[in-house]
Amino acid sequence: MTSEEILPQLTRIIIEVAHCGPVPINRATRALDVRGWDSLTHTTILMQIEDHFGLRLPLERVLNLRNVGELADLIAELRHSA
């Protein structure tokens, strides 16, 4: 699965967890751009991602992500190496 294929699924999880309503989310979107996406919501989003994609996100990697694109890339990389 590529980052591009992951992005729509990721968008669905973010919107659902942050309760932010339908907002445009793309690779450049940062947590700051989405209503209600704070560090606590972030943890819940990561948990949902782990369940949905069946993987474990390494802590040192998730603390340094800058935008949705990098998160999608990380998921793609982990799925690929699994």
């Binding site: 560090s39 606590l40 972030h42 802590l59 998730v62 603390l63």
Partner: peptide, 8 residues
């Protein structure tokens, strides 16, 4: 604290 928020 940062690690805890991400992995409570």
């Amino acid at each position: 604290p940062f690690e805890w928020v991400a992995r409570p």
